[in-house]
Amino acid sequence: MRIEFERTGGFAGMGLSTSVDVADLSPRDQETLESAVESANFFQLPRQMISAGPGADRFQYHLVIEQEGNRHEVEVGEAVIPDSLRPLIEHLSMFARTGRLR
């Protein structure tokens, strides 16, 4: 499984991104990410989830996951992240910030 993650927007307007080849991670980290992808039901999520409500300086996330020939891409506004997807975004944000999952 391969994951591309990008965060844009926010007050600072600074991008944050990372690519993860899950096979390169420790077994424990592989398990963490794979189960987060599965709990999110990632391959069934709508491609675009954008908040129509008011607000400013929110983050925008863009995720692309390839797994066993499947490829799915999701763009989601911070205000409308489904609860099921939140743990995956939190793990990937941490990985992008530090190179670690925890």
Partner: peptide, 22 residues
């Protein structure tokens, strides 16, 4: 936690603590 941002959500202001989790 580890929230590097501040925003207006349409009703109020919201502030993160930055990288204090690292």
């Amino acid at each position: 936690r580890g929230y590097d941002n501040a925003f207006w959500n349409g009703k109020q202001m919201v502030y993160g603590d930055g990288d204090d989790d690292l």
